[in-house]
Simulated assay, not measured.
Amino acid sequence: MTDTSIPSADESVDAEGTEPTAAPDADETDEAAAGGKEKKAAAESDLFRQSEIAADYVEGLLDILDYDGDIDELVSGGRPVVEVVGARLQNLVGQRGATLEALQELTRLAVFRQTGTPSRLLLDVGGYRASRRKELAAVAKNAVEKVKEHGEPVRLEPMSAFERKCVHDVVNAMSGVESESEGVEPNRRIIVRLAD
């Protein structure tokens, strides 16, 4: 990671052996901060636009399938999100979220087609992702307990990218263990082991 901090007054030479540059004056700092806020606002509006495009696409799919659902579009965690809520939506989730993953990819392609920019859009139907996160947290904690008890690595069943990220997040928050993914899709899985 690059250090972007301004050297203190008592530092006479930087890491490359050259004189440090003078600190910007207050006006330049204010302008830079304002520019950063504008870029963040622009990025946020781009993400919200992606969620709007995605919501329109999903709404069209629901109409074609004759499914009723309320669609929420938002930006969360630096990515566009579309949530579909309603009854009779389980078919859009499919077994272990397989249909949902496919719909998410189609929706990302629809966003890309209109914006020309790849999207990290997250699509959720009927709160599936939130409930799956809880299940995966339990799976991850169980694997960590086994690894700590027996000292042997634990290989989990193959998972989607979303599921693997959920497990990695839980394992990485615990001390003494680490996780990594191995294999190729659709059989990519996580191994949990004692940290080196």
Rank of each mutant, 00 (worst) to 15 (best):
A41E: 10
Q114T: 10
F48G: 05
E59Q: 06
I64N: 00
A87E: 12
S131K: 13
A34L: 15
A41M: 07
G36E: 13
A110P: 12
R120Y: 00
L100D: 09
V139C: 05
K141N: 11
E157Q: 11
L109Q: 11
V154M: 08
R133W: 01
Y67P: 01
L100K: 09
K40W: 02
A41Y: 01
T29R: 14
D66A: 11
A98G: 05
A140N: 08
G69Q: 08
G36Y: 00
G35P: 02
E52T: 12
I71S: 03
L89S: 03
V93R: 09
E83S: 08
Q90C: 01
K40Q: 13
D70V: 05
G69A: 03
G77Q: 09
M159N: 05
D63V: 03
Q50M: 07
A43T: 15
R120C: 06
A161W: 05
Q50P: 04
N91Q: 09
E163W: 00
A41C: 02
T29I: 14
Y128Q: 13
A138E: 14
L103Q: 11
E135V: 03
L136P: 13
F48Y: 11
R120M: 10
V84M: 02
S160Q: 05
L61Q: 03
G36P: 04
A161L: 03
A110I: 14
G126M: 04
L122P: 12
V147I: 08
G69D: 04
R155F: 00
R113E: 08
V85I: 02
L122W: 01
V81D: 02
E101M: 10
V111G: 11
A140V: 07
P80L: 04
E152V: 11
R108E: 05
G116K: 06
Q50N: 02
G97V: 13
A130I: 03
L89T: 03
L65C: 01
G126C: 09
V82W: 00
I53D: 10
A55H: 01
L122S: 15
G77A: 08
D63F: 00
A143S: 04
A43E: 09
G126N: 11
V82Y: 00
I53A: 08
L100R: 08
D68K: 12
V125G: 04
R164I: 01
T117L: 12
L122V: 15
G36V: 08
G151Y: 13
K148N: 01
A34R: 15
T99A: 12
D46Q: 13
E149L: 08
T115H: 10
S131E: 12
A130L: 02
P118C: 05
L121I: 13
V139A: 06
G126A: 13
K40L: 12
